[in-house]
Lab assay of single mutants.
Amino acid sequence: MASQGTKRSYEQMETDGERQNATEIRASVGKMIDGIGRFYIQMCTELKLSDYEGRLIQNSLTIERMVLSAFDERRNKYLEEHPSAGKDPKKTGGPIYKRVDRKWMRELVLYDKEEIRRIWRQANNGDDATAGLTHMMIWHSNLNDTTYQRTRALVRTGMDPRMCSLMQGSTLPRRSGAAGAAVKGVGTMVMELIRMIKRGINDRNFWRGENGRKTRSAYERMCNILKGKFQTAAQRAMMDQVRESRNPGNAEIEDLIFLARSALILRGSVAHKSCLPACVYGPAVASGYDFEKEGYSLVGIDPFKLLQNSQVYSLIRPNENPAHKSQLVWMACNSAAFEDLRVLSFIRGTKVSPRGKLSTRGVQIASNENMDAMESSTLELRSRYWAIRTRSGGNTNQQRASAGQISVQPAFSVQRNLPFDKPTIMAAFTGNTEGRTSDMRAEIIRMMEGAKPEEMSFQGRGVFELSDERAANPIVPSFDMSNEGSYFFGDNAEEYDN
């Protein structure tokens, strides 16, 4: 993207840094990872977990959730003011799984939030270390993106479920800051804005008074975040219109849905970061690795190297396929839920299948599930090659597409044709070009129609051997075009429920 120079890199967003050079960025990201790792080690000690239990991804998720809940100030305040039966607002906890007599047992633990905050700050040299908290939120978000298709949420806001490739980060909490905003897809931002506008339509006082002023500035800020994701002048001009509207209503909703559809071809720039579970960072720190000293990046080879040398386990339900569970977590670790499966298959070195073909449910185990038949197995999170994460949407291309997802959002900077089903997408653009945004709409449609099938995206960008740390010898991959490109292809993934 041309304006790259004016933006802070995501590592800076990730670490609240002012302008830093590459070495400083690597050190501050490393410091953040160190903090998460030290916190995780301490929690495993508190909970008396064995090494194996500490490497269980379900335990990692519970521990991450506990610290996120302990620092969720708004919710904590709300819980104190609106006490609900049987919930102690000062405590947080969740299921911890232990191996007892050759069987997995679930144990519900409860801790004072104050105590968890103390352990977290102690692991982070006394700081609140917001960057580390956001990092864990993005890992949870990436896992949700890989596990669930947001059909219901899309339909509720009037969008087409086939636009799911635009929904990265749709389950990120509001408090995820600049680093969170960077990884949100165009569809996620559109959905947040539509929800806001709908509230304004239904509630006369939404934009009024002292609160209304705050609401208005939040609305304009979200519009600017979305505008910054678009790469064409016409899309940005249309966002200006939406932002400046005196009284946002149905016309703005129409414009936003139009823009979301246009992003299936004229893709937005959305950041991709490899955020790993805390149970990967903990053992690495415990083994003596100093992330701050060595430096770390979320968008280069580092996460690949770390996963190459990590042992992570997962509980497996009786009829689940461990290899499929591994694929789910591998995609989440690489922030690749909406990437082209052919690119992923090449990088991973084994075939990556669409969601609907995987015999696996989510990673988390519900409290009512029976533990008797639970097994555990090693997650295979290694890769054959590594590639640089991208934040450009890439230019655009036609490809055989599917009944489910009709476009992709690249996660890796790797040369390819970008699949999208042009006739299906263009069919949504018939007729409606009147109104105050008509010239911009016409211009956007013209650009979409001009998108050429034979153009290559990320020209000359390749993948790298894991021994090639400096990215000196790019390998331009070859793809098996007979395979499906979309992950949520004609899909039956479970729906995400809060």
Rank of each mutant, 00 (worst) to 15 (best):
V414H: 00
T130A: 05
S287Y: 08
Q415V: 12
D439Y: 00
A323I: 13
R121K: 12
K48S: 09
F458E: 02
Q168A: 15
E375S: 06
A271R: 10
E107N: 13
E484V: 15
H324K: 01
D497L: 11
T151G: 07
F71D: 13
P474N: 01
N76S: 04
L298K: 09
V463P: 00
M426G: 00
C333P: 02
Q415Y: 00
R175W: 10
V329E: 01
I316Q: 02
E469M: 08
N211K: 02
N202L: 11
L172S: 08
K87V: 10
Q399M: 00
V463M: 10
A263T: 15
G295D: 14
E18A: 09
L133H: 01
Y385W: 09
W104G: 02
G169I: 11
N370G: 02
W120C: 09
V242G: 05
N368A: 06
R441V: 04
N368L: 09
R156S: 12
G187P: 12
R446N: 08
G356A: 09
F258M: 11
D72P: 02
N417M: 04
H140I: 12
L381P: 01
V285W: 03
T437R: 01
L466F: 14
M196A: 12
A178N: 14
E455K: 06
S165A: 15
Y385A: 04
R216D: 05
A260P: 08
N432D: 00
R121A: 07
M13E: 08
Y296L: 04
S60F: 02
G93S: 12
C275Q: 04
K305I: 09
V190D: 05
L193P: 06
I197F: 06
A271W: 05
I119L: 09
E220R: 09
F258Q: 11
R342I: 02
Q122I: 15
N76W: 15
A251Q: 03
P89T: 05
S245Y: 09
A22K: 15
G362I: 04
P410C: 15
M456R: 15
E294P: 00
A2V: 14
A323E: 01
K77A: 13
G17F: 00
D160S: 01
D112P: 08
K90T: 15
L306Q: 15
M331T: 10
M239I: 14
Q415P: 00
R106G: 07
L259A: 15
Q399L: 09
Y10A: 15
N125D: 08
Q12Y: 00
K98P: 05
I253A: 05
R74C: 02
